[in-house]
Write a protein that binds this DNA or RNA. Structure first.
Length: 637
RNA sequence: GCACCCGUGGCUCAAUGGAUAGAGCAGCUGACUUCUAAUCAGCAGGUUAGGGGUUCGAGUCCCUUCGGGUGCGCCA
C-alpha cells in the first residue's frame, strides 16, 4: 500500500498543483477506522481551506470536480463531514494488487546505517532492563533492513569503566582470589551478579574503600597486573555470556567495539583536533573550570567539560570520538579480529588495537541509531549537537537517540523476589531495576521461567508429543512471549514489570500471534499447499463473497496492504510498538474470520480459492513481521 | 532550582490534530462431533487528573495547577 499510497499522492498532487498552492507533503492519506468513510482518506481540503480562508467543503467540492474519473483503480470519491475526501477503491483491485506485489521489496536505499544496542557493562549477568534494549535494538535493525537500508549492528563494551573496577576489587581484595581461582569460577557472570551489589554496599559504608577503587581503576588503565589481567578476563567472559543470552532469543551482532581500543588507539586526539579546529571545543574562561577544555551545550547554555584540568578525558569525550568514527568523520580506524561465530557460521568481529586481520569497512555510516534508555538523553543530546556543529548546516550525517523508558519492578514483584522494600520506596508505584543494588531479574532466569511455563502448556495440549519436540516448541513460545512483550509498549512508557503480565500467553501476547500463524500453516498443510501459488487467471471476482464475508475479508486485505507504511512509520516516529500493535490487530481480524468461514471443507471452488489467497497473503506478511520482531514460528501449538 | 517524560475503565496498556476514545487481563453469559478453544461471540465498565486557551475539529498542541517518575559531577 505504500506504493499505492504514493501513486495516489503523486497523481493527486499533479492534478491539484495548478489550482492550489500546495506541496506534495501536504497530502497525507490514511485508512479511516470505519469503512463507511472510504478505503483511503485525506484531509487536504481542510489544509487548503485554512490557507485560502475558505470553507473546507467548498474547496472539497472544487477538488472533486477536478479529479473525478482520473484514477483507474478508484470507483468513487466522496466529500464527507465538512472536508474529508474519501476514496473508494474498486472492489476487485486490492486483492490482485497484493498478489502481484507479494514479494516486492523496498529499493536499496544505499545508505549505511549503524544500530548500536545492548552495550551492557561487562561486569555481571544481563537483566530485564537490558532485554528491553536489545529487543528494541534488534527489531529496529531488522525493520531498517526490511526497508532496504544496509545495517551494521554494534555493541559497545565499556571494558575500562568503574563498574568493572568494582568487581575486580571485589574478587582480588574482598574475596582474596588469585587469577587462577577466578578462572575456575563456573558461570562467572552469575557469580559477579551476586558480588557486585555486595561490593557496592561496602563502598557506601567505607570511603577508604572508594580510594582503593580509584587506584585500581588507574592500574587497569595503565595495564598493571594482576588488576589488568583480571579485568581483561572478566570483561571477556561476561561479554561471552551476554552474547550467549541474547543469542538464545535471536539477537546477534556484527561488531563489538571496546572502549579500551578507543583509548589505546588514542581516538580522542583526532576528535579533539577536529573539535578545536572548528572551534567547537575551547579552553574555558570560567574560573571554576580553569584549564578545562569544554564545549557549549546550547540548549541549557552551559559548558560541558571534555578535558579535565588534569588533562584526562571525560566520558563524553570518549563517546564523541566513537560517534565521529561511526559517521566516518575520522581518518583513524580500529583494527579488527574475529571474536566468535554463531552456529550458522556468521562471524562476530571485535575491535583490536594492533593489526590482525585485514578487514576494513566497519563504521562510516550515514545514519547512526543509538538505542539507549531515556536517562541518557542529556548526554545523547550533547553529542548530537556536537555532531551538528562539526558538520555544519548542510550536514548529512546524523545520530539519532533511539530512546526508551526504563524497566522497573512493581513493589509486588520486588517482594516476590524476596527483596526488602525500603521505607522511602514503599509508596512508589514502581522500583527501578538496578544491577548495582541487586534489585533485578536476570535475563536468563526470566527466559527459564517462561520456558517452564510454556512447557506446562504444551504438555497439557499435546500429551502424546515426544519430549524433544515439546522442549523445542516450549522454547519458541517463551521467546515469542518475551520478544513481543518487550516491543509492545510505547517506548516512553515505563514498563512496570510483573510476572503475571510477562508470563501471560493469552490475549495481547506473542503466543497469540504465534498461534494464529500456526493455524494458517496447519490449514495449508491439510490442503497440501507448500509454496505461494496463486494463479491470478483462475481467481474469481471478489464480489462472489457474501456481504458479511466480504466485509471482514476486505478489512484484512486493507490491513495487509499497510505493512510497509506501518514499518516506515514505526521508524519515523521512533515507536516500534506500532509494529506490534499492527501485527496484533491483523491477527485479531483473522481469528475472527477463521471462526466464521471454513476453508478446507469449502465445496465451492471459487470461494475456496479466494479464501486460500487470503491466508497465503496473511502468512506471507506475518512471517515478515515475526522475523522483524524476532518471534519464532512453532510447528505446532 | 533547571530540563525531560508520564497521568485514559478495577488492573496493564492503545489511539499519525480527524469522524462513534479502542484492546487485553480480571468479572459475568455463551460457542469445541468442525481447518487446533493459547481461539471466538456477547454483557458490563470512561467527565481521557483539574482549570483555561488555540482550532472547522483536542486524549493529542499552548498556558496553568495538582500528582508521579527520570536526568542535571573535573564519575563512567
Amino acid at each position: 500500500m505504500k506504493f499505492l499510497k504514493d501513486d495516489l499522492k503523486n497523481k493527486l498532487y499533479r492534478l491539484l498543483k495548478e489550482d492550489f498552492a500546495i506541496s506534495i507533503e501536504d497530502i497525507q492519506f490514511s485508512v479511516p477506522s470505519n469503512r463507511k468513510f472510504g478505503d483511503l482518506s485525506t484531509t487536504i481540503p481542510f489544509i487548503i481551506a485554512k490557507r485560502e480562508k475558505e470553507k473546507a467543503f467548498i474547496i472539497g467540492t472544487r477538488i472533486i470536480e477536478k479529479i473525478k474519473n482520473k484514477f483507474n483503480f478508484i470507483f468513487d470519491i466522496e466529500l464527507a463531514n465538512g472536508g474529508f475526501l474519501n476514496f473508494y477503491l474498486k472492489k476487485d483491485f486490492l486483492l490482485k494488487y497484493l498478489i502481484k506485489n507479494i514479494n516486492r521489496k523496498s529499493k536499496d536505499k544505499n545508505q549505511k546505517t549503524i544500530v548500536e544496542h545492548t552495550s551492557i557493562n561487562p561486569n555481571k549477568s544481563a537483566h530485564i532492563g537490558h532485554l528491553r534494549n536489545s529487543c528494541l535494538g534488534d527489531t529496529l535493525a531488522k525493520s531498517l533492513k526490511y526497508l532496504g537500508y544496509e545495517v551494521e549492528i554494534q555493541n559497545y563494551i565499556d571494558d575500562t569503566g568503574i563498574q568493572l573496577t568494582d568487581v575486580v576489587w571485589g574478587l582480588l581484595y574482598y574475596k582474596n582470589k588469585k587469577i587462577e581461582d577466578i578462572k575456575k569460577i563456573k558461570d562467572l557472570a552469575s557469580y559477579l551478579w551476586e558480588l557486585y551489589p555486595e561490593v557496592n554496599k561496602l563502598f557506601e559504608k567505607d570511603s577508604n574503600m572508594l580510594k582503593q577503587r580509584t587506584q585500581i581503576h588507574e592500574k587497569i588503565e595503565k595495564k598493571t597486573d594482576p588488576e589488568y589481567e583480571v579485568s581483561n578476563y572478566i570483561s571477556q567472559e561476561v561479554l561471552k555470556d551476554h552474547i550467549r543470552v541474547m543469542d538464545r532469543i535471536g539477537i546477534r551482532y556484527d561488531l563489538l567495539v571496546r572502549e579500551s581500543d578507543i583509548i589505546e588507539l588514542d581516538f580522542f586526539k583526532e576528535a579533539a583536533d577536529i573539535m578545536k579546529k572548528k572551534g567547537v571545543m575551547y579552553l574555558s574562561k570560567d574560573s571554576d573550570k580553569k584549564g578545562c577544555w569544554v564545549i557549549k551545550y546550547n540548549k541549557e547554555n552551559i559548558e560541558k567539560i571534555i578535558i579535565r584540568s588534569n588533562n584526562t578525558v571525560t566520558y563524553i569525550g570518549k563517546d564523541i570520538a566513537y560517534t565521529l568514527w561511526k559517521v566516518g568523520l575520522f581518518k583513524k580506524d580500529f583494527y579488527f579480529r574475529k571474536f566468535s561465530e554463531y552456529n550458522n557460521k556468521k562471524e562476530i568481529f571485535i575491535t583490536y588495537n594492533k593489526p590482525d586481520l585485514n578487514i576494513h569497512g566497519f563504521g562510516n555510516a550515514v545514519m547512526v541509531y543509538n538505542v539507549i534508555d531515556t536517562r541518557q538523553s542529556y548526554l545523547q543530546n550533547i553529542i548530537s549537537q556536537v555532531l551538528d556543529n562539526l558538520t555544519g548546516s548542510n550536514y548529512k550525517k546524523k545520530q539519532v537517540h533511539f530512546s526508551y523508558e526504563m524497566v522497573a519492578l512493581t513493589p509486588m514483584c520486588v517482594k516476590e523476589l524476596g527483596f526488602e522494600i525500603l521505607k522511602e520506596e514503599g509508596k512508589k508505584p514502581y522500583i527501578e531495576v538496578s544491577g548495582r543494588k541487586g534489585i533485578a531479574i536476570k535475563a536468563d532466569e526470566l527466559i527459564e521461567k517462561l520456558i517452564e511455563k510454556s512447557l506446562e502448556e504444551v504438555k497439557l495440549r499435546h500429551p502424546e508429543m515426544e519430549d524433544v519436540k515439546i522442549k523445542k516448541i516450549a522454547k519458541e513460545i517463551a521467546i515469542g512471549a518475551l520478544r513481543y512483550f518487550m516491543v509492545k509498549f510505547n517506548s516512553n512508557s515505563v514498563i512496570a514489570f510483573d510476572f503475571k503480565d510477562a508470563l501471560s500467553f493469552e490475549g495481547d501476547t506473542g503466543p497469540y500471534l504465534q498461534y494464529t500463524l500456526v493455524r494458517t500453516n496447519s490449514i495449508l498443510k491439510k490442503l497440501k499447499i507448500k509454496d505461494f501459488s496463486i494463479d491470478l487467471k483462475n481467481l474469481t471476482d471478489i464480489s462472489i463473497l457474501s456481504e458479511n464475508e466480504f466485509k471482514i475479508y476486505y478489512e484484512i486485505l486493507l490491513d495487509l496492504s499497510l505493512i510497509d507504511s506501518q514499518i516506515e512509520f514505526a521508524i519515523y516516529s521512533n515507536e516500534l510498538s506500532v509494529i506490534a500493535k499492527y501485527t496484533y490487530s491483523l491477527c485479531q481480524k483473522f481469528n475472527h474470520y477463521y471462526h466464521l468461514f471454513s476453508i478446507v471443507s469449502e465445496q465451492n471452488k471459487d470461494l475456496k480459492n479466494l479464501r486460500i489467497s487470503l491466508i497465503l497473503l496473511l502468512k506471507n506478511k506475518l512471517e515478515k513481521l515475526y522475523y522483524i520482531m524476532g518471534i519464532p514460528i512453532p510447528e505446532k501449538m
